[in-house]
Amino acid sequence: MLTLKEAQTGHDYEVVKLHGTGAMKRHIMDMGLTKGTKLHIRRVAPLGDPVEMTVRGYELSLRKADAEIVEIKEC
């Protein structure tokens, strides 16, 4: 299973599923990362975390530990 945590800079992915429950999952979904959403990994912060991605036409940054609940596949 590939998660957003392992995503590579410069690659494009599609969200397969969001794992977990509660506030964080909802928050991530509210920001537009839902099933089937396409995303592009833009860069990783200088200290190695968080990750910046383009999703639904805007820039979103997400910490790797939080990104772990997002299952993705390459596309």
């Binding site: 964080m24 928050h27 991530i28 805007y58 820039e59 979103l60 940054s61 910490r63």
Partner: peptide, 9 residues
């Protein structure tokens, strides 16, 4: 706390 943030233009 989770870090989920928009980077505005």
């Amino acid at each position: 706390a989770p870090f989920i943030m928009e980077l505005p233009a």
